[in-house]
Design a protein around this nucleic acid. Structure first.
Lengths: 230, 230
DNA sequence: CCAAAAGTGTTCATCGTACACCCATGT
DNA sequence: ACATGGGTGTACGATGAACACTTTTGG
């Protein structure tokens, strides 16, 4: 620290903004809310809130997410801090962006409705206030990179899922079709999925076997030098 | 933003701290300074400073780096924001960490000396104040990951460098020996380096050809779908 | 019976990896 | 002449990519 500058230095408003991702078996989506105050009242925006005294950044992001979705224990990771002086035209606000991966049917619909929140495809969402577009784009890039080397995709699926479901998730995130034989071979060869005896018949007449991600196996393999890769 | 909380929300001290990396043809190093004030006066620490009113985070990091090294136009990238409430035991300070990659002989020795700064191997540096150790570790991980897929290693070398120099840089960052034939094959096959007619005779009797990284070629290839990989 | 999605193997090209010797030169 | 670091090629195994048909069953 440059303590030649003393502790009477400038203080700043610090906010957290959350990019909330979900997957509905078709598209990768983000959850947006309408800005409740002027200026730009009614415009679409990310969910955010100010960091309180005595509240860590991680805690602030959890609080904001809980307020919006009623969810706790979700995958939540810091993304980037946006600090341009005029990014908020009213006041100078430094914003720490977080992104969350949630199982789209787990959130509390009531709370979401009350907040006027809505899901949008990442391929087609409305213009957002301030630099929130940039936040979303940054989050998508990060997710796209990270999902190839870390088993975070499972955070977007229910506990039990089928291989075709998992594949279409990856196709949605990566925005490219994948070969189903190669995908299946790859993912199963890692021995991270437990095959269940149940089938999911929602999406086909034949039905597809359900699988579950085995985190213990993942931890064990990882500590032995294994690295996840799609 | 959660504007149900109003703009009279809590304000915070915001600092930037810089992890400055250098390479001396032997080891990957970081630049540390001695904390000039109590508490923990004289302990080793990263270089940092408070973000001013009307100053963006990027600008603040550039200023801090300039103050320490006299350098402008260096590779500088935001790393992570550390926001635990008690990370600084005196006051609550949110710190945005940046990391810089500099050509170790380019910095202004005089300014560095005046700041009491010193280079340490990343493999053996003193205990740092607060959570600065964690910042350094986070930076090393990021550098290690990023140098494999982006041509950022060159930021740590002089304009003109030899293949063995480049190789030992990667060995230092990745902390593993690399096969010299494979390394040379790989790096030259990307066609990103211009071979010069000069040789560097500092490190061997035979002398090694100097090369220069060609950023234009990199941009062109990248826009055609090429991706750098070591 | 047929439409729609699930499931299954092989071939080929490419890439990463392992590995040993000669070269040029300063001392 | 010799020690030191620079420079070069090949063979093998592993991995990624391309590709088509059969199975199941609800309507």
């Amino acid at each position: 620290m440059d303590y030649t500058t003393n502790y009477a230095a400038a203080k700043h408003l610090v906010a957290v903004d959350c990019i909330v991702f979900g997957f509905d078996n078709e598209d990768l989506k983000i959850l947006l809310v309408r800005r409740p105050i002027e200026p730009q009242k009614g415009d679409w925006s990310l969910m955010g809130g100010f960091v309180q005294q005595g509240e860590s950044l991680d805690d602030a992001s959890k609080r904001v997410l809980y307020t919006l979705t009623g969810l706790t224990d979700v995958y939540l990771e810091q993304l980037y801090t946006f600090g341009d002086v005029h990014r908020d035209p009213v006041d100078r606000v430094i914003s720490v962006a977080y992104y969350a991966l949630i199982k789209i049917n787990d959130y509390d619909r009531e709370i979401v409705r009350r907040n006027g929140a809505q899901w949008f495809k990442v391929s087609n969402y409305p213009r957002l206030i301030f630099d929130h577009d940039q936040m979303v784009q940054t989050a998508i890039s990060k997710l796209r990179r990270k999902c190839r080397t870390q088993p975070i995709g499972f955070e977007l699926l229910p506990e039990k899922f089928t291989i075709p479901q998992l594949q279409s998730l990856y196709e949605a995130i990566l925005m490219q079709p994948l070969d189903k034989r190669n995908f299946r071979k790859k993912i199963l060869s890692m021995n991270l999925l437990d095959k269940l005896d149940e089938k999911d018949k929602e999406n086909s007449k034949k039905g597809a076997y359900l699988y579950r991600f085995n985190r213990e196996k993942y931890e064990t393999l990882t500590s032995n030098g294994f690295s996840f890769e799609i």
